[in-house]
Design a protein around this nucleic acid. Structure first.
Lengths: 337, 337
DNA sequence: CTGTTAGCGCATTCAA
DNA sequence: TTGAATGCGCTAACAG
């Protein structure tokens, strides 16, 4: 493995000149430049990042803390982060937190060890003020989830407005008995969606029934969605629509409806959230709100980059556009038909 | 940020002693050790990996070259690699190749730059002998796909046997007209499955019809599966079973069957491969061959580790067990009922 | 058991 | 426009 000294010797110049050329610093005469490039070519030299990084005191790596890369929602975000990182000259390190705060801490310690220059966090709980201890020291960005009063730059969608859009749509279709499958997790998105659900009902003079709200497992599992929908459908009077905070949950709900001998959407309307699961592989295709996951990943990387470059005025928040996608799992309630 | 020198000064010892303690080399008296630990604690010192890595000439990073982390099949493998890497004291870098050989090359160049100590490749084409140029220089492992005559350690399943298992099962059910949705890609798995399909037919005295074999898109898309199944179902006489080389393809095939007014499995049996897609979210649940993706990822990391540790006798091949999972999309052909 | 010292390969200051 | 020299923080001889 050739070093810069080898190149310098081969080209008959000093290492300083080679370094300058490689980093476009100062000016190097065309003739020497040519000689150096020839030497680089001949020795097939590649700079040793280990040395460069130590010298510059940076790793050119960004850390991604994700609870589970197997979940397509996170996978799409990761994909965006990875691509943006590459464009910016960074590499993306994945660290699986398994949804465990202790592992998040463990991951963040890598910043102190200089394994990465900054980190992007996913799936933070609302009470994540403890992250400030790290955010004060290192560039940190949160994606999707964040703490409402925790001053760390984050990118997300407007979960409240998205939910209001969903509710306006359902109510506009004529639904009055709308149930909600939420989750027992502690995400800001969950909280805002629940609030949007309640506010929409209230503003339309519809009573909010506690037995129309049910909490699925933290991870939005299909099984949980199915089980919870089953409970919801046993409530009297039966809701005509179920708003689920994820597509997987909606998929489970649709299965529950079908297994109870009912039809979607004729008997029960089901609506999801995310548009990232396989929502168009089976009928009924799911009506849902699409989140721009890939773009959110990219934007997170961009924010982090701004932070790492010590840019002033880095926005504390970047809200991307959601989109209601009406497909086949929703229709007016039968009673109105 | 405290350095080792700070710790040494604080503890009244030399940096060598601190280093020895941190690396469990040589012996340090309990008293000095205690003083050093106290100093580390007080200064909340963390070793600078940038410096350590340069000194040791290693990055402690493994590179993962994947065409698309959004595909659950790869995501599960990645997950296994990531976990195994962490256990071994390594970090996992993801590099999206977008299924482009030029990008694979680009990724491998990172090894020369010392950004990573070794790499795990996914989705290599069969004619990947050009990889040897890198494998000769750096630790390389291939996961799932590999070149039949390319001497690079790889982990996979026995695609031929798995296919034979599928075919024995289908033929055992009484199927005689079995179609095959393959792919136009150049993977060894595709090739072995096609061979397994043909050999099974031949050994059972069943004629292999070219119009029962069709090639879906490289990426096994749902859409492609649906379209190709449609073509297959138009052939006279209609096949009673369709063996698809991926679950997504099978999902597409099932949709095609249904849309043509036929039933799965009563009219057409469909069988998939991988068991990684959402095969149990809708009826009929898909009969398929399960690949131990997560384990394959772990095993890949282990092999790579052995390579990086310069262990002698690193196996050139590690074949993990597959498993036929019979669910609802298969049954004896109607004609026999 | 502990300390001194010499680099790892590079970027960067300063002098020429 | 170029080169000499310094040191980033650490590990590993080697000496004591």
């Amino acid at each position: 493995m050739a070093t810069m000294a080898d190149v310098a010797r081969e080209a008959g110049v000093s290492v300083a000149t080679v370094s300058r050329l490689l980093n476009n610093l100062g000016v190097v005469s065309p003739e020497t430049a040519a000689r150096v490039y020839a030497a680089i070519e001949k020795l097939s030299y590649e700079p040793n990042l280990l040395a460069r990084n130590l010298r510059k005191n940076e790793s050119r790596v960004i850390l991604i803390l994700s609870p589970n890369i197997t979940n397509p929602y996170y996978a799409h975000i990761l994909s965006g982060i990875g691509d943006a990182a590459a464009e910016l000259g960074y590499s993306a390190l994945i660290f699986n937190t398994a949804d465990d705060p202790a592992r998040v801490r463990e991951g963040l310690e890598m910043l102190k060890k200089h394994r990465a220059d900054g980190a992007i966090l996913m799936a933070s709980d609302m009470n994540c003020a403890w992250l400030l201890e790290y955010a004060d020291e290192y560039p940190l960005v949160q994606c999707s989830e964040y703490g409402p009063d925790v001053d760390i730059p984050h990118v997300s969608i407007d979960n409240y407005r998205a939910t209001r859009d969903i509710m306006e749509y359902l109510i506009g279709l004529g639904h009055r008995r709308i149930a909600h499958i939420s989750s027992e997790n502690d995400y800001i998105s969950t909280s805002l969606r629940l609030k949007g659900y309640r506010d929409a009902l209230a503003e339309h003079g519809l009573t909010s029934r506690d037995d129309y709200i049910i909490y699925a497992s933290r991870d939005y599992s299909f099984k949980s969605g199915k089980a919870k929908a089953r409970e919801l459908l046993a409530v009297e009077p039966r809701p005509t629509a179920i708003f689920c905070i994820s597509d997987t949950l909606a998929l489970g709900a649709i299965t529950a409806v079908k297994e109870m001998g009912l039809r979607v959407p004729q008997d029960v309307t089901v609506i999801g959230f995310d548009d990232v699961e396989h929502t168009t592989m089976f009928h009924p295709y799911i009506t849902t709100v699409a989140q721009p996951c890939y773009e959110m990943g990219k934007e997170s990387a961009r924010l982090l980059y701004a932070l790492m470059m010590q840019e002033k005025q880095v926005p504390r928040q970047s809200i991307l556009e959601h989109r209601l996608i009406v497909r086949e799992s929703t229709s007016p309630p039968a009673e109105l038909e």
